[in-house]
Design a protein around this nucleic acid. Sequence first.
DNA 1: GAGTCAATAACTTTCGAAAGTGGTCCAAAT
DNA 2: ATTTGGACCACTTTCGAAAGTTATTGACTC
Lengths: 256, 256
Amino acid sequence: MFSIKFVGCDQVIGKLSDMASQTSAPYDVLRQGLIWGRWKSGERLIPQHLKEELNCTSSVLREAMVRLAGEGFVVSEKNHGFRAVAHSQETFREAAHLRLVLEREAAELALKNGDFEWEMALSAAHQKLAYVEQQMVQTGNTTDYVKHWSLQDWEFHRTLISACGSALLIGAYKSAFDTFRMYAVAEFPDFGFSNVLTVGEHLAIYDAAIGRDSAACVAAIEQHVTLYHDGNRSAEPLPTKTRSAATMRALGGITI
Amino acid sequence: MFSIKFVGCDQVIGKLSDMASQTSAPYDVLRQGLIWGRWKSGERLIPQHLKEELNCTSSVLREAMVRLAGEGFVVSEKNHGFRAVAHSQETFREAAHLRLVLEREAAELALKNGDFEWEMALSAAHQKLAYVEQQMVQTGNTTDYVKHWSLQDWEFHRTLISACGSALLIGAYKSAFDTFRMYAVAEFPDFGFSNVLTVGEHLAIYDAAIGRDSAACVAAIEQHVTLYHDGNRSAEPLPTKTRSAATMRALGGITI
DNA sequence: GAGTCAATAACTTTCGAAAGTGGTCCAAAT
DNA sequence: ATTTGGACCACTTTCGAAAGTTATTGACTC
């Protein structure tokens, strides 16, 4: 029904560099590389040094960096070129907060406006995501799956808010989401996935969304995003109070 | 105390093109031009045609457009160059909504965190803004003052949220604010200023902010931003129900 | 008259070189 | 020992031409 392929880190980045899609390939490679920590916080990005690696000229790299500067992944100073944006707990906190604000609003609207098609798409996205997460929990191998998980994670959240009715809001959310991911990758060894927490949280969001329970959905999203702040992510089991019924269902396995 | 100079449209744009500030001048000219309707909805932006006017080469124009594409002011399609983003009532509605969401959140935080310095800065910003607005109301000449009003309008809202504690949130708000302004300029002949409404609304926001009345401040912001939706902006007096005490004070003149 | 097709024109994108800028290193001067 | 000056080096930015792409025109065909 849905195919889960093993996708290693370098392979994903490599793939993006190969695909001659309509958008510039070096841009995508840089963007992914920045999100996934290929360049460290504040590291200089020197077009001439990177051109062989991404096989393109420094000009197109410069153009890509200008774009990325606009998105906040790199910073530029006149006559000093480009650097990967500086990470800190503070920037991470801000990114999580912005993501939360936007997702909260967009989700509320989507729950009001979402039609049957949306429910189906969300259901599908959740199943795919849940499957990957199950794989990660069962094998205990987060590192190999994490890129693919990240993709499905995005797909789930994107689908959730897709019915919000505002392309601008979705765009702003995507930007905040990717920024959040970048800082999460830098902050946590497991890139923001937690064996125990994440599965249940996604299920809680999904259940609330399908049940059109706006308040519960917002609460679930808040829990999902906010826990990162506390450095509360680990593979250890949780105190029982944070385990909802939905979480328990998730821990028991995917049974749809 | 504060100097109000007559500033015409072309003069502002011209000034920006002259100043050899650290950031690229053509970028600023393009950005301002797009916001203020120099290029119409969906109009093609051809570097070669614009280079004489902004006296620079097409390369730097291209770079500027790439940046602006990232910010959503222009759109680009592979091998088809750049166009001014397409305006519509829908995009305007979305921009107003996004601005509202961000300002609401940021203002709430600022009201919690703002210190004495912030109060002073906000007070100063509000006075400057109120003075320009008073000038506009008294002379009845909105068109000549509108660029300057817009600057003070931004300064007021920027100061309001400046104490929110998140540079990322402020950046996102600025982007949304400018996008909102662009669509407002396109939609309304008076560029979004209303003789009667705006003065009172800003005062209501200011009062609530200084009084640390978070709920009232959010409500005032909502009114301020939302009224645009309804096409409810005109120079005509309003139905009384929307006139708050603060509005009446504003109409009576600035008396600080 | 409508529909191809090739030739031309207009524009976009990419490229590599030239010009410009900031930083470093080392020798000479204080 | 510290400072000054300047030659060098690495990198950034800008430029204009070359290559590539799409749009347009007009002659030719059916």
